[in-house]
Design a protein around this nucleic acid. Structure first.
Lengths: 207, 207
DNA sequence: CATCCAATCTTGACAGCGTCAAGTTAGCCC
DNA sequence: GGGCTAACTTGACGCTGTCAAGATTGGATG
């Protein structure tokens, strides 16, 4: 997929860091996280097994960088959501929801990596990753604020619930939806539209 | 914690399967999933490194059995939720929500294992695990039905949304909340009560 | 009670993994 | 051109999951 060809073949690779990330992305997407080993990765890029250590402190650091790329793409997705409300609010939101779900379900391994415990638990995320991830969330929270400010979400909600809380709760719903679908636990692909519709109706408090 | 002492010391352990699961639970809870290796596990129980293979086909199968235990406990939690509605509905639901969140956050590693991609993706879950997990969900769905039937959830919701969808959506919300909290991504422990309250208000459509 | 079987457990071995230390190469600046 | 430093390689270590072959045993069968 991405260029695995490294025709320079010189001792110094040139842009090994990018090449590693690209190849890692391919492996992640095609064969899953379990098949992503530094050794196979190095071999595919055409360098020795310990070359990556000059660009990433750890395997963990490489995974963080990979996740960070994902959050940047997610941020772009958020940026692409139109904030002009000429349309029906429900329609706009539906559009965003389906975009988010597509983002998650079309690259499940990456989504798992981005939000998974592997990266975020005690073995802490890179400072860089943290910032990128929080920027994406702020972006989302701002979007929610916008919707509410334009009176498109019921004002009763606004009075009861702080905007931040609504942002967190709605993200949690979206996130949980994606996780259950991705992991294939309680929701399968055919249901997910209807389930998200149910969630949307709850948030909009349509009667 | 659980008995690691195996005083019989005979060639045949007696109840190795249970001992393995118990020890695995301890390791999982104390040191995390990454520290759970068959070799250390076997050593702790006092058997050789390949003894477990006579009770579990795989490491994967052992993890499935571990997750299955978790789902059984979760099922008990659901069973313990009172369905008589003498109390305020919101209060009852709040009680259940806090119980579920406690279940997830007090044993994060187990929760991750239960719902994580490790078990549920292509490397399929045990048939036994599947059944146990779905039984827990049915239990939950029945609970939701009960709440709705007793007119404790707004009938407007009922008319628009199928019960199953509401069950899935609400579980997704709860699940997403727990995941984000456990993984420490966007929600920290102090916030979670308020966030879940926001979600609850959305579902109840209180005005 | 003796015998045998099948289940259980052990030992040895293999390939794969992440990671480090020591040595090699090459681009770049003075 | 000389030398410094970053990039890269090779060898090695301990850890992992898993399998094959052999040892041990409890229980059923005669």
């Amino acid at each position: 997929m991405t260029q695995t060809t490294t025709q320079p073949t010189s001792y110094h690779h040139g842009d090994l860091r990018s090449a590693l990330l690209a190849a890692a992305n391919d492996i992640l997407q095609q064969d899953g996280i379990d098949s992503l080993s530094l050794r196979k990765l190095s071999e595919r890029v055409g360098v020795s097994r310990s070359a990556p250590y000059h660009h990433f402190k750890d395997k963990h650091a490489l995974l963080c960088a990979l996740a960070e790329q994902g959050f940047k793409e997610l941020d772009h997705l958020l940026a692409a959501t139109p904030l002009r409300m000429n349309e029906n609010v429900a329609t706009e939101l539906r559009h965003f929801i389906s975009n988010y779900i597509a983002f998650a379900t079309q690259h499940p391994e990456r989504y798992e990596l981005m939000f998974g415990r592997t990266i975020w638990k005690t073995s802490q995320p890179t400072e860089s990753l943290k910032q990128t991830a929080y920027k994406a969330f702020e972006h989302y929270a701002k979007m929610v604020n916008h919707f509410m400010a334009e009176r498109k979400l019921p004002s009763t909600t606004a009075s009861v619930t702080a905007p931040l809380r609504l942002a967190q709760a709605s993200w949690a719903t979206l996130h949980g939806l994606c996780r259950l679908q991705i992991d294939g636990v309680y929701i399968n692909m055919e249901d997910i539209t209807e389930v998200s519709e149910a969630a949307l109706q709850a948030i909009l408090k349509l009667d």
